[in-house]
Design a protein around this nucleic acid. Sequence first.
RNA 1: GGAGAGAUGCCUGAGUGGCCGAAAGGAACAGUUUGCUAAACUGUCGUACUGGCAACGGUACCGAGGGUUCGAAUCCCUCUCUCUCCGCCA
Length: 423
Amino acid sequence: MLQVSYIRDNRDEVLNRLSVKNFKHPELVDNIIKLDDDRRQTQTQLDSIAAEANASAKKIGDLMRQGLKDEAESIKSQSNTNKEQSKILSDKLSAIEILLQNELVLLPNLPHISVPKGKTPEENVVALEHGKIPKLMQNALPHWELATKYDIIDFELGNKIAGAGFPVYKGKGAKLQRALINFFLDRAGEAGYREMQPPIVVNEASGFGTGQLPDKEGQMYHIGIDNLYLIPTAEVPVTNLYRDVILKEDELPIKNCAYTPCFRREAGSYGAHVRGLNRLHQFDKVEIVQVVHPSHSYQVLEDMSAYVQSLLQALELPYRVLSLCGGDMGFTSAKTYDMEVWCAAQARWLEVSSVSNFETYQSNRLKLRFKSKEGKSQFAHTLNGSALALPRIVASLLENNQTETGIKIPAALIPYTGFEWIN
RNA sequence: GGAGAGAUGCCUGAGUGGCCGAAAGGAACAGUUUGCUAAACUGUCGUACUGGCAACGGUACCGAGGGUUCGAAUCCCUCUCUCUCCGCCA
């Protein structure tokens, strides 16, 4: 959520940057400023009436104590009219505040100056490519056929017990999952991230804090009876650990990581592009989250990007890094890099990680602040990234590493799997 | 699921209608001092909104929301959460 004071002071800049994000309702900005004017005016009126009422209540108290009942009574009637007025004003104030809040949450985060213009994924900028595109043998198979061939992932079985998009991993398939999770967690630990194990359901306040609610309501599984949401990413619980928190400056940066299953309804997604592991309702992911001082959040974004790349390099997967254009970036992000891995049999790039700087957009919602040495509190910057999401990593490992005799496990992973081949 | 107790500032904890934005202690921070990895003393020490160039003011907040009252941390109602005991259970 953007800060109203920032919008007021930088109206033109806000409009400019929203246009980079291809935002469709720039009129909201002036609306918000006008509502805030209203809010301030009403607030001031209310405050002065309340001040009057407080003063006369105090006076009544004094008079009563001195036993001057009649004089006290005469002031009471004045207090009554104050009361009516302040009731009207405070109703008006809360109505305005609700309107203001409702409009404020409709504004996406402002893109960083370095974010390329553009509306569609095609306009994302390829920041770099790494690794060699493998040449596959003649009869190479897509991962969903390999999964069946080696009996390591069973989509039908998952379909039976839960539904489409909930695969069952079997044997070496299941072990590969566990190996990847441990590999990613160990690496994150070495990179200074503290491992956390959060709940995989969250309440409404948490959903709001990181920006999933109110606008992405339909993408999360909702447990109506308890009003809880299955997390779409560990970002939600791990970032919300710091909701309503005022940190000390020297506690920054905070670096956390967590493995969780992630749940996404992905309503409305069908077709060949979502076959196999490409898009699931439940998948596993290790997430890294940082809370940092605003002065170096962009350096940290680069660090996180480099870290994610180091994982892909260790797994010997060819990848590219995209700097997302304004139109393709998430609602809450100020700058995002996507890492895509080459899936050789499908001959396409698949997103396996997304690393973003949210600047103060989340921390304003979360009320996540830090207190500087001078005693002033200000919003911290939050960042997060997938490090990494498993299914598409598995897809590309299977497809890229397939041979006549089986699927070769990359060297870095063998200590974790305990086997070198899936065959 | 049943019964009971409770929710106050960074923490502990007092406060049952006006003198309470809130005692006291602790923690933290700053300073003074003592010749020593510590003590003593003094001071500072919640958040947000708002007025003002500023100095300095105003308002709101004692789990959340509503009510009673001239006046609520304190009384009433609703909700949420926590704890204890019992039941169930990995």
